[in-house]
Design a protein around this nucleic acid. Structure first.
Lengths: 113, 113
DNA sequence: AATAACCAGTTTGCTATATAAACTTCATTC
DNA sequence: GAATGAAGTTTATATAGCAAACTGGTTATT
């Protein structure tokens, strides 16, 4: 596909900054705690919560809510295999699009100067 | 700044796919026609129009509406110096964030596995 | 010469999104 | 035992993104 078209059609579930941060963080570990993710990304709790829900609905992460010592609630999140592949693909896609455009460089297109 | 925080706080005016496509296309030329941009990005007219308006309000592009042979309306767009700097910075920022995260690699953070 | 079709965009209306404040549930402290 | 705090979730709101419908003009058709 043409690089600019590809750029304009990037998957927004992944591309959105907060979620790209979360997914990229998650892809660096097998498991992360909610509060840890919050600290890492600087998102508010509410915000992080709804982004995680969106990612889970998209099948990119799995959320596990449980209790420590049957008392303290703890939410942990892991990225799925699909999720891991998708983030990696996204970063590679960004790189490759940018590279393609850089290479064309001088070759300035019709109807533009 | 921590890379994940930086990621989560990316400038959305620039990061949004359609606008990143437009800005990146514009930064490769001094001037582009509306219809050409539309073809290049695959956006609908309405969509492109509102994104351009947003970019103009943000001072990243300048829109010029005029008539060819005093008859045919034509809208051309140029990126501003600020705009050009901002897109370039954005791409570099993405690269640098990704690189930083890649390097940390094995060093898996606290509260995660 | 009237009208139909077309072109280049803009505006409108709708749906979806992102965000933080308020709320919930339980645990610990005073 | 009232109050404070922790860990999230839900709600409310304001904004965003999108395409369909619209506008103002031009060219083609009958």
């Amino acid at each position: 596909m043409l690089p600019y078209k590809e750029l304009a059609r990037l998957d927004k579930l992944i591309h959105e900054p907060a979620r790209l941060a979360v997914l990229t963080a998650l892809s660096a570990c097998t498991l992360a705690e909610f509060l840890f993710l919050q600290e890492l990304t600087g998102l508010t709790k509410g915000n992080l919560s709804s982004h995680l829900t969106k990612l889970e609905k998209g099948g990119l992460v799995v959320i596990d809510k449980h209790f420590l010592r049957k008392k303290i609630p703890q939410t942990t999140v892991r990225i799925t295999a699909d999720g891991r592949a998708a983030v990696e693909r996204h970063w590679k896609q960004l790189q490759s699009i940018y590279q393609t455009i850089q290479q064309q460089g001088a070759h300035s297109p019709q109807n533009s100067r």
